[in-house]
Design a protein around this nucleic acid. Structure first.
Lengths: 204, 204
DNA sequence: CTTAATTTTGACCACTTGGTTAAACCGTTT
DNA sequence: AAACGGTTTAACCAAGTGGTCAAAATTAAG
């Protein structure tokens, strides 16, 4: 019997998230957002002047939710091995529970690449520092001299792609919801192992 | 000075590909397809009754172009190691030259999952046979007892994701077109090595 | 050449879209 | 109770949207 004390503005943003995440910018309808929030369509325009504005708000929210945790984990003082395990575990859980997010973000990056630079500053993401961090740790802790960028992209690919490809796995391989979740659960062990094995065998 | 002898229907389909690949189903406009093909909008309806039909034609074409080569490579009689090298090499080239394709397909799978089953038959894709093939080869040639599904998803992830994430790499990491192509070129060596190293170290 | 079939076009339509605007609502302050 | 600010609504609009249709242009057949 909890009464959620949310402002109308917040309710609209929540509704906009639902609609944009599932249908994308072009597929989303201002009317549907209003309905989902239980308010008049004009109210959506009252708080967020137009479709672009409210989309940007939703996109920023989604982007931050992913980048924030990445920063937190990779700039912690964990050993590299733990970072990978923590990262994969967290992202597979988070993404599989928000399976529309990654594709939504990728589409957003394709269609509105301009809006991003500002957000990078806002989220304090510094690619160079991230690369340095990975290079340093793989060198000192694992004795490797690998290209940190390839390593990072590999980590992201192995964590994100299986979630983005969810409908592919469902339809082509006929996985049920239960089987899929079990698959994601397995990957929390399989993927870190896979990555660390791959690095272990690198020619120094 | 070659005169391309294409039927109007083919010209329309080509135009539809361009538009749908870039803008997706909701973003695409029948008028834009007609303009791109240099014909009247009604002609598009004349050959493909409605938007759904022409989208399906485009989607099938895209899907086949990816699945066909996958089948060809994985059911060839190459050793597993060569299959991986061949597959990665081919897909990174093909996808980076058609960088809108993978995201287009993923979006299509999300929004129109029904249409796919028929195409699976049409493309003779048999997931079970594919899994058996991978299981058999990893066992006999590499002496491994790994889950072939995780292996396949890892291969796909490492090949496809970096292309899907192209705008991410461009905007966040500030890669130029040239740098990106060099990056993809590197990956044709890095990724097979990464995968084979990972498998090599697997506990039997 | 005439006719018939096919291909292409322009005009049109019902409907949806994002967005505007003026009026109504409502709690607070005078 | 009147006046005021922020909030919410209904009615409306111009610009598209996918789709239709009958007529024109082109090609094929007799």
């Amino acid at each position: 019997m909890e009464i959620p004390i949310t402002t109308t503005e917040e309710r609209i943003l929540e509704a906009a998230k639902k609609v944009f995440h599932c249908k994308g910018f072009d597929g989303a309808r201002m009317q549907e957002i209003a309905d989902e929030a239980g308010v008049n369509k004009s109210l959506v325009h009252y708080y967020y002047r137009n479709k672009d504005n409210i989309f940007q708000a939703v996109f920023e929210d989604a982007f931050s939710s992913l980048i924030g945790k990445l920063n937190e984990i990779f700039f912690s003082d964990l050993p590299f091995t733990s970072k990978i395990e923590t990262f994969i575990g967290y992202y597979i859980t988070f993404l599989s529970q928000n399976s529309y997010l990654p594709l939504f973000i990728l589409n957003g990056l394709y269609s509105k690449p301009e809006q991003i630079k500002a957000m990078l500053l806002k989220n304090h993401l510094s690619p160079e520092r991230l690369m340095d961090q990975i290079r340093k740790q793989t060198r000192e802790e694992l004795g490797l001299d690998v290209d940190p960028f390839h390593v990072l992209i590999n980590i992201l690919a192995l964590s994100i792609f299986p979630v983005v490809a969810k409908p592919l796995i469902e339809t082509i391989f006929g996985f049920s919801e239960v089987q899929l979740n079990q698959f994601y659960e397995e990957r929390k062990k399989v993927v870190p192992e896979f990555i660390l094995n791959a690095l272990k065998n690198y020619e120094k």
